[in-house]
Design a protein around this nucleic acid. Structure first.
Length: 268
DNA sequence: GTCCATGTTCTTTA
DNA sequence: CTAAAGAACATGGA
């Protein structure tokens, strides 16, 4: 599901309501969604005040007034929503944060359970993450890519190389930059790296403006779907005409992921 | 029944 | 040894 734009959208929606809010209680309906295993969240969260909520890559990082923090990862099917306490709880709602002095609560719902709650304590949320794409300079992107011969599409999905891009926005950015997804990452010319860096930023920013892409599961924290899906140029458009040249969009499988591109605009 | 899906991590292979 | 490919995780919709 959720890549950088979707996670950013959720964070922006939650921020005004939950910043400064005090946690009255929590409900944890499945303990196996918490990492490290056997972390008892109840004493760590109850009575604490939320100081801030931020995004790092695809992680939703919540910091408490005692300087401890944790993050929520939405995985493939996760939702983090702000719901009225009277609103019926959906199936697969694993974790609820009850807030003082409000009629709403934060609910984490995740049918496939690829997501979860990750307790950090005073550790940072940086572990195993590459740089943020929205502030990345071309020279830094070049440095990140120069040591791998893997296809550029695979490199963009590697969160240790660049953090926050997933299957949709990798395809969309490569189309915008006119780069074939199978091009070895270390074979990209400087001009292509610059184009890719710009394309990544532009794609992610536009997606954020449309509040992300909803394929099936993703919704914003207010339960509304994202509006960017109809703007996709290649993702999930196999067989449809390219918006630039009318050539049918091609679909290949790369590292077990569907990869869509225009064979005419994105030559090897 | 089959195949596929926005992600990550562990294991196996080269 | 490292880099890269593959499998696994769990659920639901087409």
């Amino acid at each position: 599901m959720p890549e950088l734009p979707e996670v950013e959208t959720v964070v922006r929606t939650l921020r005004p309501t939950i910043t400064g809010a005090k946690i009255a209680a929590i409900q944890l309906n499945r303990t196996d969604i918490v990492t490290p295993a056997n972390t008892n969240l109840t004493p760590l969260l109850t009575g604490k005040t939320i100081t801030s909520i931020d995004r790092r890559a695809k992680r939703i990082v919540i910091t408490l007034d005692d300087c401890n923090r944790f993050y929520i990862h939405l995985g493939m099917s996760g939702r983090l929503t702000l719901d009225q306490v009277t609103h019926p709880t959906k199936l697969h709602t694993h974790f609820i944060i009850e807030l003082e002095n409000t009629t709403t609560q934060i609910r984490f719902n995740d049918p496939r359970r690829f997501g979860g709650v990750f307790w950090l304590g005073t550790d940072s949320a940086e572990k195993d993450l590459g740089p943020e794409p929205l502030t990345l300079k071309p020279a830094h992107l070049a440095k990140q890519l120069q040591h791998t011969r893997r296809p550029i599409k695979a490199a963009l999905l590697d969160q240790t190389i660049i953090a926050g891009i997933g299957n949709i926005y990798a395809d969309e950015a490569l189309f915008l930059a006119k780069i074939h997804p199978l091009t070895p990452a270390n074979k990209l010319k400087p001009i292509q790296i610059s184009a890719l860096n710009r394309a990544i930023k532009q794609t992610l920013r536009q997606a954020i403006n449309f509040k992300g892409s909803t394929l099936r599961d993703y919704v914003n924290a207010d339960n509304s779907p994202g509006g960017y899906r109809t703007k996709h140029k290649v993702y999930d458009r196999a067989g449809d005409p390219c918006t630039r040249c009318r050539t049918p969009i091609k679909r290949i499988v790369l590292t077990a992921r569907s990869t869509c591109f225009c064979p005419d605009c994105q030559k090897r």
